[in-house]
Design a protein around this nucleic acid. Structure first.
Lengths: 110, 110
DNA sequence: CAAGCACATACGCATATGCTCATGCAATCA
DNA sequence: TGATTGCATGAGCATATGCGTATGTGCTTG
Protein backbone atom coordinates (compact mmCIF):
# COMPACT_ATOMS: atom_id res chain seq x y z
CA UNK A 1 0.00 0.00 0.00
CA UNK A 2 2.52 2.56 1.15
CA UNK A 3 5.30 3.81 -1.13
CA UNK A 4 6.36 0.50 -2.69
CA UNK A 5 9.60 2.16 -3.59
CA UNK A 6 10.84 -0.57 -5.89
CA UNK A 7 8.25 0.75 -8.33
CA UNK A 8 6.83 -1.51 -10.98
CA UNK A 9 8.13 -1.06 -14.52
CA UNK A 10 6.31 1.67 -16.40
CA UNK A 11 5.38 3.48 -13.24
CA UNK A 12 8.70 5.26 -13.43
CA UNK A 13 7.78 6.77 -16.76
CA UNK A 14 4.57 8.16 -15.31
CA UNK A 15 6.35 9.60 -12.30
CA UNK A 16 8.99 11.10 -14.54
CA UNK A 17 6.30 12.70 -16.65
CA UNK A 18 4.71 14.31 -13.60
CA UNK A 19 8.04 15.81 -12.62
CA UNK A 20 8.49 16.99 -16.20
CA UNK A 21 5.26 18.95 -16.01
CA UNK A 22 6.72 20.86 -13.08
CA UNK A 23 10.00 21.41 -14.88
CA UNK A 24 9.05 24.54 -16.83
CA UNK A 25 9.44 28.03 -15.40
CA UNK A 26 6.30 29.31 -17.10
CA UNK A 27 4.21 26.53 -15.62
CA UNK A 28 5.64 27.26 -12.20
CA UNK A 29 4.69 30.90 -12.67
CA UNK A 30 1.17 29.84 -13.48
CA UNK A 31 1.01 27.60 -10.43
CA UNK A 32 2.34 30.41 -8.30
CA UNK A 33 -0.39 32.69 -9.60
CA UNK A 34 -2.96 30.01 -8.87
CA UNK A 35 -1.75 29.49 -5.31
CA UNK A 36 -3.81 32.56 -4.47
CA UNK A 37 -6.92 30.92 -5.90
CA UNK A 38 -8.87 30.31 -9.08
CA UNK A 39 -8.13 32.56 -12.07
CA UNK A 40 -9.27 32.80 -15.68
CA UNK A 41 -6.94 32.76 -18.65
CA UNK A 42 -6.85 36.51 -19.10
CA UNK A 43 -5.83 37.03 -15.49
CA UNK A 44 -3.14 34.38 -15.84
CA UNK A 45 -1.80 36.00 -18.98
CA UNK A 46 -1.56 39.29 -17.11
CA UNK A 47 -0.03 37.69 -14.02
CA UNK A 48 2.70 35.84 -15.89
CA UNK A 49 3.43 38.19 -18.76
CA UNK A 50 3.23 35.36 -21.28
CA UNK A 51 1.35 35.32 -24.55
CA UNK A 52 -2.22 34.05 -24.55
CA UNK A 53 -1.39 31.11 -26.78
CA UNK A 54 1.50 29.98 -24.67
CA UNK A 55 -0.38 30.31 -21.39
CA UNK A 56 -3.27 28.34 -22.80
CA UNK A 57 -0.98 25.54 -23.94
CA UNK A 58 0.72 25.23 -20.58
CA UNK A 59 -2.65 25.16 -18.87
CA UNK A 60 -3.71 22.27 -21.09
CA UNK A 61 -0.51 20.45 -20.18
CA UNK A 62 -1.25 20.74 -16.48
CA UNK A 63 -4.88 19.76 -17.03
CA UNK A 64 -3.77 16.58 -18.78
CA UNK A 65 -1.49 15.85 -15.83
CA UNK A 66 -4.47 16.35 -13.49
CA UNK A 67 -2.67 19.14 -11.67
CA UNK A 68 -5.37 21.71 -12.50
CA UNK A 69 -9.14 21.82 -12.76
CA UNK A 70 -11.16 23.73 -15.35
CA UNK A 71 -14.46 25.57 -15.00
CA UNK A 72 -16.24 27.34 -17.82
CA UNK A 73 -18.28 30.39 -16.97
CA UNK A 74 -19.79 31.99 -20.03
CA UNK A 75 -17.03 32.85 -22.42
CA UNK A 76 -14.35 32.61 -19.76
CA UNK A 77 -12.51 29.60 -18.40
CA UNK A 78 -11.28 29.45 -14.83
CA UNK A 79 -8.41 27.28 -13.74
CA UNK A 80 -7.53 26.16 -10.23
CA UNK A 81 -5.06 23.86 -8.54
CA UNK A 82 -6.60 20.41 -8.27
CA UNK A 83 -3.76 18.48 -6.69
CA UNK A 84 -2.77 19.80 -3.26
CA UNK A 85 0.47 17.82 -3.31
CA UNK A 86 1.86 20.50 -5.63
CA UNK A 87 2.16 22.83 -2.66
CA UNK A 88 4.31 20.42 -0.72
CA UNK A 89 6.35 19.53 -3.79
CA UNK A 90 7.29 23.15 -4.37
CA UNK A 91 7.98 23.71 -0.70
CA UNK A 92 10.27 20.69 -0.55
CA UNK A 93 12.26 21.75 -3.59
CA UNK A 94 12.50 25.35 -2.45
CA UNK A 95 13.54 24.24 1.02
CA UNK A 96 16.34 21.94 -0.08
CA UNK A 97 17.42 24.52 -2.62
CA UNK A 98 17.66 27.18 0.05
CA UNK A 99 19.70 24.85 2.24
CA UNK A 100 22.08 24.11 -0.60
CA UNK A 101 22.58 27.73 -1.52
CA UNK A 102 23.15 28.70 2.07
CA UNK A 103 25.80 26.03 2.36
CA UNK A 104 27.47 27.22 -0.83
CA UNK A 105 27.45 30.79 0.44
CA UNK A 106 29.01 29.69 3.70
CA UNK A 107 31.73 27.89 1.76
CA UNK A 108 32.88 31.26 0.51
CA UNK A 109 33.99 32.12 4.01
CA UNK A 110 31.25 34.66 4.63
CA UNK B 1 11.77 32.47 6.33
CA UNK B 2 9.25 29.84 5.37
CA UNK B 3 8.21 29.20 1.75
CA UNK B 4 8.07 32.75 0.41
CA UNK B 5 5.89 31.43 -2.30
CA UNK B 6 5.95 34.51 -4.52
CA UNK B 7 9.46 33.46 -5.49
CA UNK B 8 11.93 36.00 -6.72
CA UNK B 9 12.61 36.12 -10.45
CA UNK B 10 15.22 33.63 -11.54
CA UNK B 11 14.50 31.35 -8.65
CA UNK B 12 11.80 29.74 -10.73
CA UNK B 13 14.33 28.69 -13.34
CA UNK B 14 16.41 27.00 -10.69
CA UNK B 15 13.41 25.22 -9.21
CA UNK B 16 12.30 24.14 -12.68
CA UNK B 17 15.75 22.75 -13.34
CA UNK B 18 15.64 20.68 -10.17
CA UNK B 19 12.33 19.19 -11.22
CA UNK B 20 13.78 18.53 -14.66
CA UNK B 21 16.55 16.44 -13.15
CA UNK B 22 13.89 14.20 -11.63
CA UNK B 23 11.98 14.02 -14.90
CA UNK B 24 13.90 11.17 -16.50
CA UNK B 25 13.01 7.51 -15.97
CA UNK B 26 16.63 6.39 -16.03
CA UNK B 27 17.58 8.87 -13.33
CA UNK B 28 14.67 7.71 -11.21
CA UNK B 29 15.88 4.14 -11.63
CA UNK B 30 19.31 5.20 -10.42
CA UNK B 31 17.80 6.98 -7.43
CA UNK B 32 15.72 3.94 -6.65
CA UNK B 33 18.82 1.79 -6.71
CA UNK B 34 20.57 4.25 -4.42
CA UNK B 35 17.72 4.31 -1.91
CA UNK B 36 19.22 1.08 -0.58
CA UNK B 37 22.54 2.83 -0.04
CA UNK B 38 25.80 3.83 -1.68
CA UNK B 39 26.76 2.02 -4.90
CA UNK B 40 29.56 2.27 -7.44
CA UNK B 41 29.03 2.80 -11.15
CA UNK B 42 29.35 -0.84 -12.09
CA UNK B 43 26.69 -1.84 -9.60
CA UNK B 44 24.41 0.90 -10.87
CA UNK B 45 24.91 -0.22 -14.45
CA UNK B 46 23.92 -3.73 -13.41
CA UNK B 47 20.97 -2.54 -11.33
CA UNK B 48 19.47 -0.37 -14.04
CA UNK B 49 20.37 -2.28 -17.19
CA UNK B 50 21.68 0.88 -18.83
CA UNK B 51 24.95 1.32 -20.67
CA UNK B 52 27.98 2.46 -18.71
CA UNK B 53 28.23 5.71 -20.64
CA UNK B 54 24.61 6.60 -20.13
CA UNK B 55 24.62 5.77 -16.44
CA UNK B 56 27.74 7.86 -15.95
CA UNK B 57 26.16 10.82 -17.73
CA UNK B 58 23.03 10.73 -15.62
CA UNK B 59 25.09 10.47 -12.45
CA UNK B 60 26.97 13.61 -13.44
CA UNK B 61 23.68 15.38 -14.03
CA UNK B 62 22.49 14.53 -10.53
CA UNK B 63 25.84 15.49 -9.05
CA UNK B 64 25.63 18.90 -10.66
CA UNK B 65 22.16 19.27 -9.18
CA UNK B 66 23.59 18.37 -5.76
CA UNK B 67 21.24 15.41 -5.47
CA UNK B 68 24.10 12.91 -5.17
CA UNK B 69 27.49 12.72 -3.52
CA UNK B 70 30.64 11.16 -4.98
CA UNK B 71 33.37 9.21 -3.27
CA UNK B 72 36.42 7.81 -5.05
CA UNK B 73 37.92 4.60 -3.75
CA UNK B 74 40.83 3.44 -5.85
CA UNK B 75 39.67 3.04 -9.39
CA UNK B 76 36.01 2.95 -8.40
CA UNK B 77 33.58 5.76 -7.73
CA UNK B 78 30.73 5.43 -5.27
CA UNK B 79 27.59 7.50 -5.47
CA UNK B 80 25.02 8.12 -2.75
CA UNK B 81 21.94 10.22 -2.26
CA UNK B 82 23.00 13.54 -0.78
CA UNK B 83 19.65 15.31 -0.60
CA UNK B 84 17.13 13.56 1.66
CA UNK B 85 14.27 15.62 0.26
CA UNK B 86 14.34 13.34 -2.78
CA UNK B 87 12.68 10.62 -0.72
CA UNK B 88 9.75 12.80 0.16
CA UNK B 89 9.48 14.20 -3.34
CA UNK B 90 9.12 10.74 -4.81
CA UNK B 91 6.69 9.68 -2.11
CA UNK B 92 4.53 12.74 -2.72
CA UNK B 93 4.39 12.20 -6.45
CA UNK B 94 3.72 8.50 -6.10
CA UNK B 95 1.03 9.15 -3.51
CA UNK B 96 -0.92 11.68 -5.52
CA UNK B 97 -0.47 9.54 -8.62
CA UNK B 98 -1.94 6.55 -6.82
CA UNK B 99 -4.87 8.62 -5.66
CA UNK B 100 -5.54 9.87 -9.17
CA UNK B 101 -5.36 6.43 -10.75
CA UNK B 102 -7.66 5.00 -8.11
CA UNK B 103 -10.18 7.71 -8.82
CA UNK B 104 -9.95 7.07 -12.56
CA UNK B 105 -10.45 3.36 -12.00
CA UNK B 106 -13.49 4.05 -9.87
CA UNK B 107 -14.89 6.26 -12.61
CA UNK B 108 -15.11 3.18 -14.80
CA UNK B 109 -17.73 1.79 -12.50
CA UNK B 110 -15.28 -0.61 -10.90
C1' DC C 1 56.54 0.08 -18.26
C1' DA C 2 52.73 -2.29 -20.50
C1' DA C 3 48.18 -4.05 -20.11
C1' DG C 4 43.70 -3.97 -18.27
C1' DC C 5 39.88 -2.24 -15.54
C1' DA C 6 36.65 1.55 -13.96
C1' DC C 7 34.80 5.58 -15.07
C1' DA C 8 34.21 10.05 -17.76
C1' DT C 9 33.52 12.57 -21.91
C1' DA C 10 33.29 14.23 -27.06
C1' DC C 11 30.48 13.51 -31.16
C1' DG C 12 26.54 12.74 -33.96
C1' DC C 13 21.82 11.59 -34.42
C1' DA C 14 16.99 11.33 -33.28
C1' DT C 15 13.33 13.07 -30.75
C1' DA C 16 10.84 16.07 -27.75
C1' DT C 17 9.36 20.43 -26.31
C1' DG C 18 8.69 25.40 -25.99
C1' DC C 19 7.64 29.55 -28.55
C1' DT C 20 5.44 32.58 -32.06
C1' DC C 21 2.14 33.51 -35.58
C1' DA C 22 -1.97 32.59 -37.53
C1' DT C 23 -6.38 30.67 -37.42
C1' DG C 24 -10.50 28.20 -35.48
C1' DC C 25 -14.39 28.02 -32.35
C1' DA C 26 -17.73 29.37 -28.88
C1' DA C 27 -20.12 32.82 -26.30
C1' DT C 28 -21.62 37.55 -25.84
C1' DC C 29 -23.24 41.82 -27.59
C1' DA C 30 -24.82 45.42 -30.86
C1' DT D 1 -27.21 38.22 -37.70
C1' DG D 2 -22.77 40.25 -37.83
C1' DA D 3 -19.01 41.74 -34.94
C1' DT D 4 -16.20 41.27 -30.95
C1' DT D 5 -14.21 38.97 -27.05
C1' DG D 6 -12.05 34.88 -24.74
C1' DC D 7 -9.83 30.82 -25.30
C1' DA D 8 -7.90 26.69 -27.92
C1' DT D 9 -5.18 24.72 -31.47
C1' DG D 10 -2.44 23.80 -35.87
C1' DA D 11 2.06 24.80 -38.39
C1' DG D 12 6.73 25.71 -38.37
C1' DC D 13 11.04 26.81 -36.29
C1' DA D 14 14.70 26.71 -32.80
C1' DT D 15 16.61 24.51 -29.03
C1' DA D 16 17.39 21.04 -25.62
C1' DT D 17 18.13 16.50 -24.25
C1' DG D 18 18.71 11.50 -24.28
C1' DC D 19 21.13 7.68 -26.41
C1' DG D 20 24.85 4.83 -28.64
C1' DT D 21 29.55 4.62 -30.28
C1' DA D 22 34.04 5.65 -29.76
C1' DT D 23 37.69 7.49 -27.20
C1' DG D 24 40.14 9.63 -23.23
C1' DT D 25 41.92 9.44 -18.38
C1' DG D 26 43.36 7.64 -14.00
C1' DC D 27 44.30 3.68 -11.15
C1' DT D 28 46.00 -0.92 -10.53
C1' DT D 29 48.60 -5.00 -11.43
C1' DG D 30 51.91 -7.98 -13.53
Amino acid sequence: MAPHLPLREGALDIVAHRFAVLAEPMRLRLLQALFAGEKNVGELVAATGGTQANVSRHLQTMIRAHFLSRRKEGAQVFYAIADPSIFKLCQLVCGSLEKQLTKQAAAFGN
